[in-house]
Amino acid sequence: MKQPVRLLSGVLLALLFSLETSASERWVVLGGDIAETLSALKADINLVARDDTVLYPETLTALPSVGYLRQLSAESVLSVQPDRILANQHAGPKEVLEQLDAVGVTLDVVSAPAT
């Protein structure tokens, strides 16, 4: 079970190092796996909202929820005024992610193996 965590951490590390970000940038995280990895990497300072699958660490459950990972609405996500969305590959529906991308929010989809 350690391999997927390392792979996801590696993917997120590469993504985080490639980001030109500032402390004022606002992130929404969609996916408990991504949120947990960001927290473990101490890279969760910019998070302003999460989806309902984010249950750990408990400190992140205090963030506003934008709905369930696979049943999102663009309005709910946009209501927290994000600059960037870090999304699990299962986030959707696809049309909502396309709407978010179309309005100019940076969307990073992180794919990880199921095992």
Score class of each variant (00 low, 15 high):
Gln71Ile: 03
Gly104Glu: 02
Asp44Trp: 00
Tyr68Trp: 09
Ala114Arg: 15
Leu47Glu: 06
Lys94Glu: 03
Ser76Cys: 07
Ser39Phe: 13
Ser111Gly: 08
Ala23Trp: 09
Tyr68Gly: 08
Leu63Ala: 05
Thr61Asp: 02
Tyr68Gln: 09
Trp27Asn: 05
Leu72Met: 08
Val29Lys: 11
Leu30Val: 14
Leu41Gly: 00
Thr59Lys: 14
Leu78Gly: 05
Arg70Trp: 04
Ile85Cys: 04
Arg6Val: 04
Pro4Gly: 04
Arg50Met: 06
Val105Leu: 03
Leu107Met: 08
Ala14Gly: 15
Pro113Trp: 03
Met1Ala: 15
Leu55Glu: 04
Ala102Lys: 14
Arg70Ile: 03
Ala62Asp: 11
Leu41Cys: 00
Asn46Glu: 01
Leu86Lys: 11
Pro64Arg: 01
Ser39Thr: 07
Leu19Arg: 12
Val77Gln: 03
Val5Ile: 11
Gly32Asp: 05
Leu100Ile: 11
Asn88Ile: 13
Lys2Met: 07
Leu16Ile: 10
Ser24Trp: 15
Ser39Asn: 10
Glu95Met: 06
Gln81Trp: 10
Glu20Pro: 03
Asp83Asn: 12
Leu72Gly: 09
Glu95Phe: 01
Ala74Asp: 03
Thr61Ser: 03
Leu63Pro: 02
Val96Gln: 07
Leu16Asn: 12
Pro64Gly: 04
Val54Trp: 06
Ala91Met: 07
Ile45Cys: 04
Ala23Ile: 09
Asp52Val: 02
Gly104Leu: 03
Ala49Trp: 09
Val80His: 03
Ala62His: 09
Ser65Tyr: 00
Leu7Glu: 14
Gln81Thr: 10
Arg6Pro: 00
Leu100Arg: 03
Ser65Gln: 01
Pro93Tyr: 07
Leu13Val: 12
Glu25Tyr: 05
Leu19Ala: 05
Ala40Phe: 13
Ala23Gly: 11
Asp44Val: 00
Asp52Ile: 02
Leu86Ala: 12
Ala43Val: 02
Val105Gly: 00
Ser65Phe: 00
Arg84Thr: 05
Arg70Leu: 04
Val11Ser: 14
Val109Lys: 09
Ser9Gly: 08
Ala102Arg: 15
Gln99Tyr: 01
Ser18Gly: 14
Leu107Arg: 05
Ala102Glu: 11
Leu41Lys: 00
Ala114Tyr: 14
Leu38Thr: 05
Asp101Cys: 05
Val80Arg: 05
Gly31Thr: 07
Ala87Thr: 11
Asp51Met: 07
Phe17Cys: 15
Gln89Ala: 14
Asp33His: 08
Leu100Gly: 02
Val103Glu: 05
Leu107Val: 14
Gln3Arg: 13
